[in-house]
Design a protein around this nucleic acid. Structure first.
Lengths: 165, 165
DNA sequence: TATTGTTATACTCTATAACTATA
DNA sequence: TATAGTTATAGAGTATAACAATA
């Protein structure tokens, strides 16, 4: 029932003021703003960066495996790769073992762009985490990563700590 | 099984793998999913909840001050309040001191709904934070809140070394 | 002239289904 | 029959500008 609770505002209530959802949305919004600003020239923005990063490591992957790994819909991945290919950062090559699939190959220019973006992202991240000290920033990264991985890693998936999904 | 690559990846590279942006987006997406699921009956979802919470405490506020506090556009706030008012959870009352503005008043039913939602949200939050222990969960909340508040309460942006203009 | 709130419009995302070519 | 990729369309969400009433 209504209660006079709101008028009194005990300490406990104060803590409720820390709304986890609001904090998540607000912090994420700000990070995206910084990232978009810093990578406005990259096709697909920060997601284009992620595609380059994931596609550029290890064996060439299909569009679908990239999409799944990044949590992007396969139809969105098509558009994203269109942009990246048009900019000359990736190429679609036929998978010799499955003619339905394409191997996503990061071009030389793509790798160069990726290297630049890594530095840009590092700058954005440190700007974003600037408020926390170095120690707390590291702690935050660790905890956030555990949360993000816990959300996505299904038991059968074998995404090690060095290769997060 | 991934991979022989993991052994090769240098420490520096390793750290780069922990993509802060991806983790933020992924964790936030999952939280929103949980919150939406739990509050599908509330008009405006988790944002409707936030409006009720903020509007229900202290002095009655105008639509604009609510919008600014929650980081919602004023035009979106109009639609949001339309829904909440239609559901009988809030009322728009004329501000006696400024006939342009409206005071947002949370109805008795709105307060009752809010109380229920508080419990629902608490459940969602603990589900979301479940992976971390109680101690790390508290730490995460603290760090995230500092980040979220730092983002919004910045007085005058200065272009730092990591984020050139 | 500036501000509160509303409305209308347009643009971006996302979700979905349908389609092709393969398997 | 199922899967990889593409395309088209609709819906949600958001951004923007214009407007009326008031300051």
């Amino acid at each position: 029932m209504p209660t006079a609770r709101d008028a009194v505002v005990p300490l406990d209530e104060q803590h409720t003021h820390t709304d986890l959802g609001w904090c998540l949305v607000t912090a994420t919004r700000e990070f995206k703003r910084l990232a978009l600003e810093a990578m406005s020239d990259l096709p697909g923005g920060s997601r284009g960066y992620l595609v380059l990063k994931v596609a550029g490591r290890g064996q060439p992957q299909s569009q679908l495996s990239l999409a799944r790994e990044l949590g992007i819909d396969k139809t969105v991945m098509t558009y994203l790769l269109d942009e990246l290919e048009q900019a000359g950062l990736i190429e679609r090559r036929p998978d010799p073992n499955d003619r339905r699939a394409r191997h996503i190959h990061v071009t030389r220019r793509g790798r160069s762009t990726l290297a630049t973006c890594r530095e840009t992202v590092a700058g954005v991240e440190s700007t974003f985490l600037n408020t926390l000290g170095a120690k707390d920033a590291a702690k935050f990264r660790e905890l956030l990563e555990r949360l993000a991985l816990a959300d996505r890693v299904k038991p059968e998936d074998e995404c090690g700590p060095a290769a997060p999904c």
